[in-house]
Amino acid sequence: MTEPTTSQLQPMPDDWRRALAVVAHPDDLEYGCAAAIASWTDAGREVAYVLATRGEAGIDTLEPAKCAALREREQRASAAVVGVDQVDFLDHADGVVEYGPALRRDIAAAIRRHRPELVITLNHRDTWGGTYWNTPDHVAVGRAVLDAAGDAGNRWIFPELTERGLAPWDGVRWVAVAGSGNPTHAVDAAGGLERAVASLLAHRTYIEALTDEDPETYARGLLTGFAEETGKRFGDRPAVAFELFAR
Rank of each mutant, 00 (worst) to 15 (best):
A227W: 13
I120C: 05
E216N: 08
S199Y: 13
V197D: 12
R204S: 13
G130I: 12
E213W: 07
A167V: 07
W169Y: 07
N123M: 06
L166M: 09
W133Y: 12
A108G: 05
V139I: 15
L122T: 14
V175E: 04
A144S: 08
K232A: 05
A202N: 11
R247W: 09
G100S: 03
V177W: 06
A202P: 14
E228M: 10
V187Q: 10
A144K: 01
V197F: 13
G225T: 08
R143P: 05
I111P: 01
A178M: 10
P136N: 14
L161V: 09
V119C: 11
A148C: 04
D106I: 05
L166S: 08
F158G: 01
A109F: 04
G129S: 09
R164Q: 15
I107C: 00
L118V: 15
Y132D: 14
F245K: 10
A239Q: 00
T224L: 12
D137K: 08
L118Y: 12
G153W: 03
T184S: 07
S180K: 05
G225E: 07
T184A: 01
I207P: 12
T121R: 09
H203Q: 14
R113S: 06
D170H: 11
G225L: 08
V119L: 11
N134Q: 00
L193K: 10
L210S: 12
R105H: 02
G142T: 09
H203C: 14
G150W: 07
P116K: 07
A109D: 03
N182R: 15
V187R: 09
T127E: 07
H185F: 04
H124A: 15
R195H: 12
N123S: 07
A241C: 02
G192M: 00
E117K: 12
Y218S: 13
V145W: 03
G171R: 05
R115K: 11
V175F: 05
F242N: 01
R143L: 09
L223E: 13
A186V: 06
R237N: 00
L201H: 13
A189W: 00
L122E: 12
R105Y: 01
D151P: 03
G191L: 03
G142A: 08
